[in-house]
Amino acid sequence: MFFGEKLQSVRELNGLSRKELADQLNLSEQAIWQYENQYTVPKFEVVNELKKVFNVRAQFFYTEPFVTNISKVESIAYRAEDREARKKTKMETTFIDFISYFLDKFENKLNLPTSILPLLRDESMQLYNTSVEASDRLLQLESIAENARKKLDVQSNSELLYKLELSGIAILEKNMGPSIDAYSTWTSQQKPFIILGNKKKSAVRRNFDLAHELGHLLLHYKIDMDSLTKDEHKTIEKEANDFASFFLLPKAPFLKDFSAISKKSNPESYLDMKMKYMVSIGALEYRAYKMGLLTFEENRYFCATLNRKDYRKNEPLDEDIPIVRPGKVRSLLDLILKNHLFSLNDILNDYSIDRSFLESLFGLENKFLSKYFEESNRDYFNHSNVVSLFAKDN
């Protein structure tokens, strides 16, 4: 029996509309709709083409769906400039559903520490929902950001991605096109995700994306993102930006370091602070200006210089600071496969998928998983084995 639901899910997973898939296969959009709704069954030749497009085996379409819907459209927070891209949000929920399924399958074999994110989120929301005057809102956000930085034990922004992964957030990279920087969401199973676009971006701007999405996870849980008005959406985006600024640039050390800057209106004067805080020159100056450390004239000159030197797109040192990539999923797969808790061959056979399917799903480079293929007669450990991800104290 051909399962049209499997075709729809793998199409959405790959970010294709029915028309886009139909064009690739030289079929009509109506034909794809009929396959997905099981009004007709694709011919053998069509199934062979579907295999190539989606890196799966023919049997994939003839076995029951294994992924459940645990991600909701209204729970996904996009950046403000990505508002128009929400029409593709359904496809991102499919991606989260697939990723979450395989992560859960692999993590069930490990002794993982309890994620601190749900508790930190509840603490943050309790303070966030406390009624305050509009003039005190920023102080409230700053207090939430300072508490989050402390609870996550972020000593340096250079370790931010690692600390977020350690806290229980699943962070992955995904090709989402030129208009989407990042997004975040909580699943119905209370698992937090941050998905980063893999378009070329500096390390310092990626750091801001991470802090911004952390703000959404902690402040805007249960908000229906899909029903917000334009003004409401701008408000929560500004809150996430303010949170990110407070989180990345704590007040006391920032004031101390900023006092050493001789010419506040010169972007080059901020390079040492950029290296220390791993934050863009523009974000550093904006934080200082909002704290009243620059005059209006100094701020205007600074912004004019940024525009004149085209620093809005590319700042000094951007090419020198290496971009940190998510590592938790790589470590998880390495631990699982090296300890033979799962056989890669068994996984691919059980789900009728190709190696490249998993590599694409997890944002891994081509052939990353090749080294884990084992001889068919390898003596694997049985599935009752459990390996701790963290060394136990003696």
Rank of each mutant, 00 (worst) to 15 (best):
L7D: 02
Q8W: 06
Q8A: 08
Q8H: 12
Q8R: 15
G15S: 07
Q24Y: 03
Q34C: 04
P42M: 02
L50V: 08
K51W: 04
V53C: 12
N55L: 04
V56T: 15
Q59R: 13
Y62E: 05
E64R: 09
N69V: 00
K72Q: 13
E92A: 04
E92W: 13
T94G: 02
F95K: 04
D97I: 03
K109S: 13
N111V: 05
P113H: 06
D122R: 11
E123G: 00
Q126T: 04
S131R: 15
S131K: 15
R137I: 00
S143H: 10
S143Q: 07
N147K: 13
R149N: 02
L152Q: 00
Q155L: 11
L160Q: 10
L160T: 08
L161W: 04
L164Y: 04
E165R: 05
L166A: 08
A170C: 04
A170H: 09
M176D: 06
P178T: 09
A182E: 03
S188P: 03
S188A: 06
K201H: 10
S202V: 09
L210R: 13
L217R: 01
L218K: 09
K238R: 10
A244R: 01
S245G: 03
P250W: 01
K251A: 05
P253E: 06
L255G: 08
F258T: 07
F258K: 11
S259E: 14
A260F: 05
I261D: 14
S262A: 09
L271N: 11
D272N: 11
Y277F: 10
E285V: 11
Y286T: 08
A288C: 11
F296Y: 05
F302E: 07
R308V: 01
K309C: 06
Y311K: 00
R312H: 11
N314T: 13
P322G: 15
R325Q: 15
R325C: 14
V329P: 08
N339S: 10
F342Y: 11
F342A: 02
L344C: 03
N345K: 15
N349D: 15
I353E: 14
N366F: 00
F368C: 02
Y372F: 11
Y372L: 01
S376N: 10
S376L: 07
D379A: 04
N385K: 11
F390H: 13
A391H: 12
K392V: 03
